[in-house]
Design a protein around this nucleic acid. Structure first.
Length: 483
RNA sequence: GGUCCCGUGGUAGAGUGGCUAUACAGAGCUCUGCAAAAGCUUGUACAUCGGUUCGAAUCCGGUCGGGACCUCCA
């Protein structure tokens, strides 16, 4: 496979460090709310990537995605009396860490549900570590960074000394940083912590009143507090995958500062040259041509779209219609188009199963068409892979009436679906038809067989008024509810 | 202020220095009592102005437009 590497700003041939095994770390969600479309794009992207590594390149994938369950927002929203506290989270207590855990567990479960309805398999993950379960490891790393001269404590917090680090390391490997032109922004002014330099970032945040905290001792000094944002990924990726691992993923916004700082922490504290060999970042999503935001009214969660009647797999499909490295314009028209296109191929699959007399889900052991595999292998070019897939189906349209060919095409589609995961190879779902509808349909079929067209048309209209459409086949009919 | 992307047909969206995806929508045809399904065919596309070149939508530059990032947003 060839993958774009943010580290080198180019597409490079990819092969794992360990023979046949890819170690991949994906920055996961901060569980303070349910996932929105933008998050979903990121997760669908990494899922496609890890599936392609398995199904196209044949690697085993050790996939880790973290759960950030401690940060400003989770602390704010889990605080006693928070309006965002929900009944299913249980009762709030005096134990602030227990409150934080209850709050974040709720959204962690939501998140996992969202992943699964989007076709992401939980058994594809090796681990989904929570930040708060790795406090010891983070503290160890912080001590090591400080001991190595790249960190300092100040007013109860611990900071990473970017200036010192940059003396002996390269800082700005994932992102071109122009320190001289840092904009004087509100975020910098708003930071209440005391850093020596604006470019320094926090490793450990000193305890504030009414916030959950963990004890921490460094150089004999007691510094109760909580971990900074970047430290968790450094510690957990090292613990679970070892350094350096093969691929680190996240949204483009994470290139800087998050990933740059993660990388620096690993190099400074674990004394490695690299945290990961490949860094891959998915571009953002726009909705109806605009950046998704609550104020524009184009902000959607997966739940929102489901409530509007959209199938999550159509959403998954719509999210993979563009290259992961380009801004994707999600529109309801493109969602409809995705639904239609996905449904047509699904229908083809069912027709082929009929043609091949396959009545249950079975792996036919097919092979992915080479041009489709090549497209996936070319930096995960899903649009190209889809185009080749459609052409493959068109080329083999006679499979609908050729049992042998039907098996072959089905086998190929199964391999393609190992990556896309948008179709099903189980039998065509049976639709419950009310007895009266079935009765009318039978009557119409009789009339039609007798060439009594006016009666047949009358009965079709009657069926339509009951909400059903009747489609005549060669020697039988099918009924479908009108949508 | 700085760094960097992007502008492709009605829509979404690949790709590429000459052979011009793909999908949805539209049009036509085949099939069908009609319809549906399915299949086939099909169109006006590469923001703009210059330059390089035998040839550019593809490379370079200007312009216009859109966007991202610049310290906890995927």
């Amino acid at each position: 496979m060839h993958l774009y590497n943010t580290l080198t700003r180019q597409i490079e041939p990819f092969s794992p460090l360990s023979d046949g095994i890819v170690r991949m770390y994906s920055c996961g969600p901060t569980v303070y709310d349910v996932a929105h479309l933008g998050n979903m794009r990121a997760f669908v992207f990494v899922d496609l990537l890890q599936r392609a590594l398995r199904a196209v390149a044949g690697y085993r994938v050790r996939w880790v995605m973290n759960i950030t369950d401690v940060d400003d927002k989770t602390i704010r929203d889990s605080a006693v009396g928070s309006a965002r506290w929900r009944a299913p989270m249980g009762e709030q207590s005096d134990d602030l860490r227990a409150n934080l855990r209850a709050y974040t567990m709720f959204f962690e479960e939501e998140f996992k549900r969202d992943l699964q309805v989007l076709g992401i398999r939980m058994d594809h993950f090796e681990a989904m570590p929570r930040a708060t379960d790795y406090i010891d490891e983070m503290q160890h790393l912080i001590r090591e960074i400080v001991r190595s001269g790249f960190g300092y404590a100040s007013e109860g917090s611990v900071y990473f000394n970017v200036g010192a680090y940059a003396q002996s390391h390269s800082y700005g490997r994932l992102f071109t940083i122009d320190t001289a032109n840092f904009r004087e922004g509100v975020r910098i002014d708003a930071d209440e912590y005391d850093r020596e330099s604006v470019s320094d970032f926090v490793l450990w945040k000193g305890r504030k009143d009414s916030e959950p905290y963990w004890d921490f001792e460094i150089d004999g000094e007691s510094l109760p507090g909580r971990p900074g944002w970047h430290i968790e990924c450094s510690a957990m990726s090292k613990e679970l995958l070892g350094l350096p691992f093969d691929i680190h993923t996240g949204g483009v916004d994470l290139r800087f500062p998050h990933h740059e700082d993660e990388l620096a922490q690993c190099c400074a504290g674990y004394h490695v040259a690299d945290q990961a060999r490949f860094w891959m970042h998915n571009e953002f999503l726009e909705v109806e041509g605009k950046k998704m935001s609550k104020s524009l009214g184009n902000f959607y969660t997966l739940r929102d779209l489901e409530a509007m009647g959209h199938d999550p797999l159509d959403i998954r499909f719509a999210l993979m219609l563009g290259s992961y490295r380009a801004v994707l314009n999600f529109t309801f028209e493109s969602l409809r188009a995705a639904a239609t296109a996905r449904g047509r191929t699904q229908n083809l699959i069912w027709d082929l199963m009929d043609s091949a007399s396959i009545t249950e889900s079975v792996d036919l052991g097919g092979a992915m068409p080479e041009d489709v595999a090549a497209a996936f292998a070319d930096d995960l070019n899903v649009p190209q892979a889809l185009a080749r897939t459609y052409e493959y189906c068109a080329r083999n349209s006679d499979a609908r009436t050729d049992a042998v060919k039907a098996r072959e095409v089905l086998g190929a589609l199964q391999r393609i679906n190992d990556v896309l995961a948008v179709w099903t190879f189980t039998t065509r779902p049976t639709i419950d038809v009310p007895a009266n509808v079935r009765d009318l349909a039978d009557q119409r079929w009789t009339a039609r067989t007798a060439k009594d067209w006016s009666e047949a048309d009358r009965l079709r209209n009657e069926l339509a008024s009951l909400g059903w459409s009747m489609k005549d086949g060669k020697d039988s009919y099918t009924l479908q509810p009108l949508s």
